[in-house]
Nucleic acid binder design. Structure first.
Lengths: 142, 142
DNA sequence: TTTAATGCAAACATTTTGCACCCTG
DNA sequence: CAGGGTGCAAAATGTTTGCATTAAA
């Protein structure tokens, strides 16, 4: 369970494991396909009767990203989305420009190629961001 | 010269070729390595003694992107950068997390792989966004 | 001269921050 | 009970828009 990794991170950084932090963490890890943004997490918690401020959601997301447990992704909108990092391997996203649907694909081979490209430039690679924009099966029919 | 493509786009869309639009266009196309953001274009023009409002810069960038002459890139900051599209082939960016330096690399092969991945999902691919974050040669020494 | 482009200021959307109060360890 | 966590409102950013004025065709 990833919750342990979260607790470990918190205690090793002298941060407290609060009810609010657990709720936010669970929203991101509960359904890996969701890629929620801050506002979506806020909306979902509100629907469950939990009132957590957007300020706290942003503060929590910021250190979850720093910790490496969560990663921030950009789908070409004016805000960020978030996804669990540790439970998945290297992957990119197929993002539909019409309906916004996001589908993941793994890219182990591509990542290897990118590392090689980095090496040739004496660049120390860290994170990879691979997004493909286009039209999903449904939207092509229209 | 890409300026002709710009003029053609303007006239075919009943838009006017103004001094201001030419200035903005030239900032993006003058040095392909720059990848300026809106504020950077504003700053550069101001340094040249040209006063162009940020509003006009954003308006112009928006239709340059729609036209396909310019593309919008995300370097993990909270704002967009812009680069000439038509003069370059498929490419990604090596972005230094320390100093912000951006180096381009071509990725024809990777793009072919991504198109194949899209095809397997019946996804009609359109644009590709490939960024590698890490540390440049200089910043690794520190 | 007609229609579109511009600058300005205000509006907007997203994210961050200061501060008084609250809760975990 | 000490020190971090939280909500709220205000501020900070980046970007868009309404409107009166200016300029291109």
């Amino acid at each position: 369970m990833e919750l342990k990794a979260f607790k470990d991170y918190l205690s090793s950084h002298k941060l407290k494991f609060t009810r609010t932090r657990r709720l936010i963490f669970e929203e991101i890890f509960f359904d890996e396909k969701v890629h929620p943004d801050a506002y979506e997490i806020h909306r979902r918690l509100k629907n469950k009767g939990e009132k957590v401020s957007l300020a706290t959601i942003y503060r929590t997301l910021n250190f979850l990203v720093k910790s490496g447990l969560v990663s921030e992704v950009d789908f070409g909108e004016d805000h960020s989305h978030y996804e669990p990092e540790i439970t998945k391997g290297a992957h990119g996203h197929l993002v539909c420009l019409s309906c916004g649907e996001v589908k993941e694909f793994s890219h182990e081979k591509i990542q290897a190629l990118l590392k090689k490209i980095g090496k040739e430039s004496h660049f120390k690679t860290d994170k990879f961001s691979i997004q493909v924009f286009g039209y999903c099966t449904n939207c092509q029919k229209k």
